[in-house]
Design a protein around this nucleic acid. Structure first.
Lengths: 117, 117
DNA sequence: GCTCCAGATCGACCGTCATCTATATACAAG
DNA sequence: CTTGTATATAGATGACGGTCGATCTGGAGC
């Protein structure tokens, strides 16, 4: 014999009824997401955004002794921010005698920009 | 009478000798830098990057109950990440009965993408 | 050798963040 | 009104990040 039961929401859910269409599983992009997030984290400070901005605008390498006085920060702090950008692959550096020069590395920011589009 | 003095590096510096060309002062972009950094900070977590990715790929609103099981995280944690994205203006939300739907807001990511180019 | 200078690193302080459990809110259904 | 369900909020905790002063490194010049 058959029984006409009202299904509970839980049962409905188990039976396949959903509140919206199923979604693409994002696991394929997990590695890419980690990369994007690490680049974004390197840009998650106004000082570092301005550093990148100055370096890009200058279209060449810039000496640290030029960068430090642009901010109301100690020299070690600016050096720390440059290190964060370097470790994220956003900028590169080279020493020449006493001075150190920084420049934007092509590509890393482009990947983030491409994903954002 | 004139004296032929060897100038110290300090004196040279004071006399205008520099290690590189002077740099554009970045103060004009400070406000923009704060905005860019705040958007970047909202994207500085792989979970939030994947959330944005799913929402963008879906090209429409997505229910929270679809988003939570995509991650190996508790429901409050996913809700927290969605709140961070919403407060950054990256996504919007609307409630409908018991369910809440999230969707990408146009424009905010575009501004960051434009600056990166 | 010694001294000076530019820059990097260290160690400490303190605020922010990601995560959890527990609880609250708000709606739906009986 | 009571129960269940979906989401949000609160509070706690451990990890991370920005900043500084102090110190280290290594090249330049005496």
């Amino acid at each position: 014999m058959t029984v006409d039961l009202e299904l509970s929401p839980k049962t409905k859910r188990a039976a396949g009824e959903r509140c919206c269409e199923p979604v693409v599983y994002p696991d394929v992009q997990r590695e890419q997401a980690v990369r994007m997030a690490s680049v974004a984290r390197a840009l998650a400070d106004p000082v570092r955004v301005q550093l990148v901005d100055v370096l890009r605008r200058h279209a060449g390498r810039v000496c640290v002794c030029e960068l430090v006085p642009l901010f109301d920060l100690s020299q070690p702090t600016v050096s720390h921010h440059l290190k964060v950008l370097r470790e994220a692959g956003i900028v590169g550096s080279e020493r020449q005698g006493l001075w150190a020069y920084y420049f934007v590395m092509p590509g890393v920011l482009g990947e983030l920009a491409a994903w954002l589009r």
